[in-house]
Simulated scan of single mutants.
Amino acid sequence: MSIGIIGSGALGSNVARLLAKHGISATLSNSRGPQSLASLVQELGPSIRAGTVAEAASADIVFAAVRWTDAEKVLSALPAWNGRIVIDGTNPVEFIDPNSPDAKDSSNPLAAYGIKAVDLGSQHSSEIFKQYVPGARVVKAFNHLDVNVLQQPEVAGGRRVLFYSGDDAAAKAEVRKIIETTGFFPVDLGSLDVGGPLASLPFGALSTHNFIKV
């Protein structure tokens, strides 16, 4: 199956590095266009190519590696998804300007990390995310670990646990293959309504834990 990555920031670039490390082909994209990715793609090697967002979105499996605040604008502008698999790597957080009053908000326990939680009301993030990609088979994954450890799936004599959840069994099976092939230990958290909130940053019960399967 072909793989596309929308977003080349911390998550997207590290997912690309992870795939490249295991010789898995993918198309990497961002809002600035393929030329802006030339040096990164050269670093990653021949299995990763730069493309437009539309090209990445046309793949069989698409990593959504965009900021939560950009997700609706970016994903809703794309053509029909027609049953393709979309990996929701987003988390409902907003990055704070370090010079703004929000950066010194004592009521925000996440201010020290440069982020604040987005108020979603009674909904969880994947429930809202699904609305941005109508017709896609959404699998929540690759969102709960620090992006800097994505290139180190094997550690301390074991494999890092990577949670995933979704409502389509076949889509989950394909994502599980990627998780296993790249060296992680996959743990299925069930449906999106169950697993999504559990693994979603910043307040999901499992989101801040870095488990190792030995």
Rank of each mutant, 00 (worst) to 15 (best):
residue 28 L to T: 00
residue 29 S to P: 12
residue 29 S to T: 12
residue 30 N to E: 10
residue 31 S to L: 13
residue 35 Q to R: 15
residue 40 L to D: 12
residue 42 Q to L: 15
residue 45 G to L: 00
residue 45 G to E: 02
residue 48 I to Q: 08
residue 50 A to S: 06
residue 50 A to K: 01
residue 50 A to M: 08
residue 51 G to D: 03
residue 53 V to W: 01
residue 55 E to S: 06
residue 57 A to T: 03
residue 61 I to T: 15
residue 61 I to L: 14
residue 62 V to S: 04
residue 63 F to L: 02
residue 63 F to E: 04
residue 64 A to S: 11
residue 66 V to N: 04
residue 67 R to K: 13
residue 68 W to M: 02
residue 68 W to C: 01
residue 70 D to L: 04
residue 70 D to G: 05
residue 71 A to K: 00
residue 72 E to G: 05
residue 73 K to T: 12
residue 74 V to K: 03
residue 75 L to M: 10
residue 77 A to C: 00
residue 78 L to T: 09
residue 79 P to I: 12
residue 80 A to K: 11
residue 84 R to W: 03
residue 84 R to M: 07
residue 87 I to A: 04
residue 93 V to H: 12
residue 93 V to I: 14
residue 94 E to R: 12
residue 96 I to G: 09
residue 97 D to I: 07
residue 99 N to P: 15
residue 102 D to P: 08
residue 102 D to R: 05
residue 103 A to S: 14
residue 104 K to T: 15
residue 104 K to V: 15
residue 109 P to W: 03
residue 110 L to P: 10
residue 110 L to D: 02
residue 113 Y to I: 15
residue 113 Y to T: 15
residue 113 Y to F: 14
residue 114 G to H: 02
residue 116 K to F: 01
residue 116 K to W: 00
residue 116 K to A: 11
residue 117 A to G: 06
residue 125 S to W: 12
residue 129 F to K: 01
residue 132 Y to S: 09
residue 132 Y to G: 13
residue 132 Y to A: 10
residue 132 Y to M: 04
residue 132 Y to Q: 09
residue 135 G to Y: 01
residue 136 A to H: 05
residue 137 R to L: 12
residue 142 F to I: 12
